[in-house]
Amino acid sequence: MRSIVYYLREFFRPEWVRKFFFAKTAPLVAPSYFKDYPSLTGKECTQCLTCMMICPAPGAIAVLHKKGGWEPEIYPGHCIRCGLCVEACPEGVLSSGRILDVTSRDRTAFSSWYRLQVDDTLCMRCGNCCVSCPVNREVDPQLAGTGTSASDEVIMRIEGGRVTILHEEKCTGCKTCENNCPNRAIRVARMVEGIQGEEEAEA
């Protein structure tokens, strides 16, 4: 008996009755603050590869050479919509939700350092790392084309019978070398720090 009374009371609440007769489900839209797949803002990409560096999902983003310059491309099905690339990009090429607005207002950013290590006992000197490295390809087109490097400006090359790291500071930490090393001989350590600039004076 008590439960019947309870249910009657439950169903004859005016709120419920109103809802029942004027049922309206919310339209199937995503709110503006939802971090969707990053979209291009139209700003120029400088191919610094920071987005590729910070991306935690394998194969989710690549900076490709398109007509009229470089352009990051997002691969749905790989992208996990974390928004780190949007936050990390120094040029603001990508945009997602309201991350850009929030980070520019709070002056938050990521700064990063990279270290390269090669395990000579595992390395076959196949040169996959040197040739696949996007920075190397940019610095020395001959290396990209023929697998031969004569330039000393590349990050790493096979010199003196081993992979010699010449310019660690040029590394953008994209880990392409690590992913394309069949023997797991080369490792990239990325050290990322979340930083925030001084608060702007209240204006």
Partner: peptide, 9 residues
């Protein structure tokens, strides 16, 4: 989701 498509992370 991403997992069945690519394996995600």
């Amino acid at each position: 989701g991403n997992c069945p498509i690519s394996g995600c992370v």
